[in-house]
Every structure is written in C-alpha cells, then in structure tokens.
Amino acid sequence: MSRPDDEQSRADAESPAHADAGTGADAAEPTAAELIGAALSGAARRAGLSSDGGERTQTVVWSAMGGWRGILESVLPSLAFVVLFTLRPEPLLLSLGASVGLAAVFTVVRLVQKSPPSAALGGLVAAGAAAGLALWTGRGADNFVPGLITNALYGSAMIIAALVGWSLIGLAVGFLMGDGTAWRADRRKRRAFFWLGIAWGVLFFARLGVQLPLYLTDQVTLLGTLKLIMGLPLFAPMVAVTWLVVRALYPRAE
C-alpha cells in the first residue's frame, strides 16, 4: 500500500507545472535553421511582406521592390555609371563618383525623412566598396565584382539549402506565416519550397553565367546594361511566382 506522501510526489511529477519546468530545463537552444528562418522572415517583413494571405500579388511585388523609391535606388546608381562610362571612360573617377554620389543622396534623403535607411544605406556601402575596388585596380569592370560575388553566394546558398532539405525560401515563409519549420513534415510544402529554392538559385547563377564572361572580357557597357536588365525585371516575376505558391500553400483563414 502506497503512502500519501508518495502519491503526492507522483502527482506533483505528473502536474503540468512540473512538466513545463522539466521542459524548460531541457529546452534546446534555437537551431541554426530556426535562427536563419527568423532572420529571413524578418527581412521579408522589412521588405513590406506580411503574413496576410489576402494581399494582392501586385502589392506584394511592389512592396518587395520598395516602390518607386526602391526602384530608383536600385537602378539609378548603376545606370549613371554605365552611361557616363560609355560616354567618357576616362577619368574613371567621374562615372564612379556619380554612382556613389547618387547612392549617398538616396541615403541622406531617407535619413532626413526619418524613413528606414537600410535599403539605401546598403546600396551606398555596396556602391562605395565596388567603386573603391575599381579605383584601386583601374578597371571599370571591377565595379561589378561585388555583384558577381553576391550572385555566386546567393545562388550556392539557395541550391545547397534546397538539396539538403532546408530550403531558404521554406525557412523564410515558414517563420513569416507562423509555421516555423513544421512545413518540413508536409510533403506538399517541402516539395514546393524545394523547387522555389532551386528556381531562385538558378536565377542567381543565370546572372552570374551571363555577366562573368563579360567581366572577364572587359565589356563594361554591355555588362552594366545586362546587370540592369537581369535585375528587377527578373526579380519581380520571381517574387510574384513565389507569393502565388505561398498563397496556395497557406490559404487565408476565413
């Protein structure tokens, strides 16, 4: 026959509070995938995307591009460099200065208007680094080296993550939609995010495959032109396709 204090001990051990305490003590640190997913979803929210499945695709794409301001901040610095370099290759400082100057103007305008400066500031840092490299080597084509490296890294990360079953698109969408990493247990979602990750990786490698030969042959004007053509005009349709897939996988709750 059991004693009352033994029964009380068993009851305490089986109580929710006791179970929660044990779970908390044994809880593991967030995994790398969870941290990456949270970071990606945060970036998506800062880009204007939300977990509201009722958003129109046009609105989502426009928000992802940053509206007219985002388009101008993305296009004008590179466009200014290409036009000025084509008209007057020397001195190189002229075209590079115009590119960095425009990026700086966009950043200052955002700071004055107290709007989030992250996009423009990122563009300014990238333009400054690219210009510094080009001035150091004396080759206008080196202004595009950071973009080539970025495409290689992003493309590799997208495809490798998809192949190992941790699609970066899936991680971003999972945390954005409040699903965490549960999508990996859903065969339909896992397959969709696999192919979306592959598609994004192919996009980055397509840019690299077209632009790298032009860089190696020092065709600066054509390289800059194709960089612009393969930028937002390809980015926007990919965002649209991605969002349409997300809406199909996560129907809006009535």
Rank of each mutant, 00 (worst) to 15 (best):
S51E: 10
P251H: 12
E254M: 08
P233Q: 09
D186C: 04
A33S: 13
G138V: 03
A27W: 00
E90R: 12
G165K: 00
Q58T: 14
P251L: 11
L222V: 11
A162L: 01
T86D: 13
L249M: 13
G201Q: 02
N151Y: 14
K227I: 05
Q211R: 10
L208E: 06
G24K: 13
S99N: 11
S118C: 02
L135Q: 07
S99P: 00
A80H: 01
Q58N: 11
N151K: 07
D186W: 06
R45C: 05
A126E: 11
I149K: 04
L208I: 02
P251I: 02
A131D: 05
V100F: 04
F144R: 05
Q219W: 08
D179R: 07
G70Y: 10
A13K: 14
V239K: 01
D6H: 06
L93F: 10
M65E: 09
S95R: 10
L216N: 04
A152L: 14
W243E: 11
I229G: 08
V82A: 07
T217V: 08
A103G: 10
Q113V: 11
A38K: 13
G178W: 10
A161E: 04
P237A: 09
G180Y: 09
T217L: 09
L228V: 02
V108A: 14
G140W: 08
L40V: 01
Q58F: 11
L76M: 13
A43F: 14
V210A: 11
L216M: 09
G97I: 04
P77N: 04
L92Q: 03
V61R: 10
A119R: 12
T23E: 13
M65V: 15
T57R: 07
L223I: 02
L102M: 09
E29A: 15
V245M: 00
M1Y: 10
S41H: 08
T31A: 10
G101Q: 03
A39K: 07
T137S: 14
R3C: 05
L135H: 08
R139E: 15
R88T: 13
G53M: 14
G66R: 04
V83I: 15
K189Y: 06
V100C: 02
S167V: 04
R69Y: 12
S2T: 14
G165Q: 01
D26L: 12
G170Y: 04
V173G: 03
M177T: 07
S78W: 12
G123P: 03
A21R: 15
A161R: 00
V125N: 05
V246N: 05
T217F: 12
W243K: 06
T31L: 03
L124Y: 04
I149V: 15
Q211Y: 05
T23L: 15
A19Y: 02
L79I: 04
A253Q: 14
L72K: 00
V105W: 08
P233R: 09
A134R: 04
M238Y: 12
G22T: 13
A39Y: 10
L111T: 01
V109E: 13
A19D: 12
R10S: 09
V239R: 02
M1W: 10
G24A: 15
V109K: 06
T181H: 01
Y215E: 06
T59G: 15
L228I: 07
E14Q: 15
P16Y: 01
A162P: 03
R247N: 08
P77H: 03
G197V: 01
